[in-house]
Amino acid sequence: MKKILIGFALFLGFTQTQAQENNLQLKGTVIDTVANYVYLQKFHNKMFTTIDSVKVVDGKFAFKTKVQTPELYGLSVNTENSPFYIFLEKGPITVKLSPKKYYSASVVEGSVSQELFDAYRKENDIEISKFITEHPNSIVSAYVLYRNWSYRLTPDQILANIALLDKSQQNTTYVKELKELVTVLNGLQIGKKAPDFIGKNPEGKSVQLSENLKGYTLIDFWASWCGPCRKENPNIVAAYKEFHDKGFNIVGVSLDKKKENWVKGIQDDGLNWIQVSELTFWNSTIAKLYGVRAIPANYLIDSKGIIVARNLRGEELQTTLKALLNKKV
């Protein structure tokens, strides 16, 4: 695997350039599924938006859409499910698209970036600085730093990894958004004032954070579709039951897309505290305000809105609350 990645690094050093707008030369076949259309989707902010579609004729399809390359896109046979992740580049690319087994049966030819992405996925425990050092010219390095590592790193670590990228990657969307994220995170350190916000509760009424600060408040980012969030919810419920009467409160911020799923998640998990949501998935302005790149995530603030802790999980939440509330008493 190491030899493969180094080999890609040498080749990509001569092939990767800044993204440019080009007409796609993308054709392929749909295997193991009868499909009427194939949809081309653009990746942004952990979401995909459909930008074109073509009819499938005798199992074959072809796109000539004008798009920015090299970049990450998605291919799918419907717009409801997650697409097949594909890095598109200038030049002819062919795809055997398997909607039933996207990553074990689909085959892409003609995209060096896709080959590197597939290699990274198979060796997904590789440390990000090492990966970037081996592939500084690749859009894949910028993407992986943005998508898979930004929520694990401190602002200084993010900047250090950006510095490892070649200048050809410095103006990519991924790097620009990472730099914006660093600015946000630097303003959210412990001891800083938490940004105020207004959100709507399930009844459609506006709720302002600053008007609901009593004792210590946990700003909890979650969603009904988030498995790790639902797994963590019993711990938060237990903490709320034990410490609410002593001055612990919660404001839940959901990244749900559909109101009915959000409301059902609240009811099923017994989240009996303030809940707000913009129902905009990762386009949540509140999540962006708090630099949230993965959920569950949380900030614990005091009655003046000062951040005292962040991303407390399991017993750590109860231990922290016990120490703070005992000190208060």
Score class of each variant (00 low, 15 high):
Val34Gln: 13
Leu40Pro: 04
Gln41Val: 10
Phe43Ile: 06
Asn45Met: 07
Lys46Ala: 15
Phe48Ser: 07
Ser53Gly: 12
Ser53Leu: 05
Val54Trp: 04
Lys55Phe: 09
Gly59Leu: 14
Lys60Tyr: 00
Phe61Ala: 05
Phe63Arg: 00
Lys64His: 11
Lys64Leu: 04
Gln68Tyr: 12
Ser76Phe: 08
Val77Met: 07
Asn78Met: 03
Asn78Cys: 03
Asn78Thr: 05
Thr79Phe: 01
Asn81Glu: 12
Asn81Gly: 03
Asn81Met: 07
Ser82Phe: 13
Ser82Asn: 08
Ser82His: 13
Pro83Val: 11
Pro83Asn: 09
Tyr85Asp: 15
Leu88Arg: 06
Glu89Arg: 11
Lys90Phe: 02
Lys90Trp: 09
Pro92Gly: 12
Val95Ile: 15
Tyr102Gly: 03
Val107Lys: 05
Gly110Tyr: 00
Gln114Thr: 13
Gln114Glu: 11
Asp118Ser: 12
Ala119Tyr: 03
Ala119Ser: 09
Asn124Glu: 08
Asp125Trp: 07
Glu127Trp: 10
Ile132Val: 14
Thr133Ala: 15
Glu134Arg: 03
His135Thr: 15
Ser138Pro: 06
Ile139Gln: 03
Tyr143Lys: 00
Val144Ser: 14
Arg147Leu: 12
Asn148Val: 02
Trp149Lys: 01
Ser150Cys: 09
Pro155Glu: 00
Ala160Asp: 14
Ile162Arg: 13
Ala163Gln: 12
Asp166Ile: 00
Asp166Val: 03
Ser168Gly: 01
Ser168Gln: 04
Gln169Met: 15
Gln169Ile: 05
Tyr174His: 06
Tyr174Glu: 14
Lys176Ala: 08
